[in-house]
Simulated assay, not measured.
Amino acid sequence: MKASHLRTGALALSFSMLWACSGQNDTEAQAQQRLEPVVDQSATKITKFKAYTQRYTEDTVLTQNHATGHVGEFFFTHWKDGGTTTLDLKINGEFSVEWTEGGYNYVGGPGWHYGDENRVIAYRFDADSGANYITLYGWGYDKDMPKDDPAHLVEYYILQRWITDPTNNGDAGISFESNGVEYITYRTIREEKPSINSTSTFYQYWSKPLTQRELGKEYQIVFADHVKAWEQSGWILPDMNNFDASDDPTYQVMAVEVFNPAYDGVGAGKVWDAGIK
């Protein structure tokens, strides 16, 4: 976990320790520190979000409208504004999303509670009944940028499979190759829509491959290549490693998204960090 996760809590802890140790020599201060319990600051801070449920140690199924948390070592997001979509999560990164027809939007899947530019994401999809998007999905947020600048909050997608073309009304950027796959970048804007920071106006960055990924095969997404391509398009991704937003952390997940589905369906697969499997 990066040091920026510990900003507020660690600073407060540091100041209190300096005050408490002001009358001690170094040996006494070090002994006192060893007796202090170690606090997981990230676990403390992540509970500030109302949707965060808990850290599950066993496989679980999510059915509520908005839930985030951890299953084993994987963070998950599960968000819908209607319908009866469920997210079935295993502690080893396997998951399935089952949806029913209706007029609503859903997005969810497992991953990590922060984005990491150096992460290589590995995945395999075994079922897809027609999700609008199968995608690496996440957010960046900079609370210090002006809120009227859409670049302060960015929702990003690295598409792998889709039935809806999200780029028709977007600004095209550049074409580039990553891990043997050719992509094109696009940018769109969302005005006063739900986000990890309440209702906001924000940009969406897209990487769309020329061909869709097949089911039943393992793939890797080299995230750094996409961050670089967005930058070369003139689009900077804000901080992906913070708890500053109001509703969720700046997570990064392998997601299934459906909206206004015309029929029932399922998307199922597995995700893992390519450097850890």
Rank of each mutant, 00 (worst) to 15 (best):
R187W: 10
Y141Q: 05
R124C: 14
N179Y: 14
L136E: 03
K90N: 14
G138Q: 06
E98A: 12
T167N: 11
D126L: 08
E94C: 06
I184W: 11
W162F: 02
K90C: 07
D171P: 00
G130P: 07
K90R: 12
I91R: 10
N168E: 13
D128S: 00
K147V: 15
D126T: 15
G173E: 06
D144F: 09
L136H: 06
Y137K: 00
T135D: 06
H152I: 01
S129W: 10
E155T: 04
N105V: 14
G103E: 14
K147Y: 12
D165P: 04
S178T: 07
T164N: 08
G109R: 01
D149E: 12
Y104Q: 09
D144A: 05
F95E: 08
F95A: 04
W112A: 01
K147R: 12
D165N: 13
G115Q: 10
Y183T: 10
G130Y: 07
S96F: 07
W99G: 11
E98M: 03
I158G: 03
T100L: 11
F95D: 10
N105Y: 14
A172T: 14
G93T: 11
L159G: 00
I91F: 01
P166S: 02
N92D: 15
D165C: 05
K143F: 07
W162Y: 06
H113A: 08
K143T: 05
E155P: 05
Y106P: 09
N179R: 12
D126E: 12
T100S: 15
G130L: 07
E155H: 05
N179I: 11
F125I: 15
D149V: 00
Y183C: 07
H113V: 01
G109S: 02
A131R: 00
A131P: 01
Y133R: 05
H152P: 01
A122Y: 02
L159N: 02
Y157W: 07
R119Q: 11
Y137P: 01
V120Y: 04
E155R: 01
G102H: 09
N132T: 13
I163H: 12
F125N: 13
T185V: 09
S96Y: 09
D171K: 14
Y133H: 09
T164H: 10
K147I: 13
A127Q: 15
P166C: 00
P150Q: 05
N132S: 15
E177D: 14
Y137A: 01
H113Q: 13
Y123M: 13
D142I: 03
E155G: 05
W99P: 10
N92V: 02
W162P: 00
P146N: 06
R161L: 05
P150D: 00
I134G: 02
V107W: 11
N132H: 12
E117M: 10
W112Y: 14
P146F: 03
R124P: 04
P150M: 08
D116H: 14
D149S: 02
D148L: 02
G108L: 10
S175M: 06
L136A: 07
Y157D: 00
W162I: 00
S129Y: 12
D142K: 03
I91V: 15
R119N: 04
D128P: 00
Q160N: 07
D144R: 05
R187H: 09
G93Q: 07
G115D: 09
P166L: 00
F176H: 08
N168A: 15
E101L: 02
H113I: 08
H113K: 06
L136T: 08
D148E: 11
Y186I: 01
T185K: 08
I174A: 04
I174C: 03
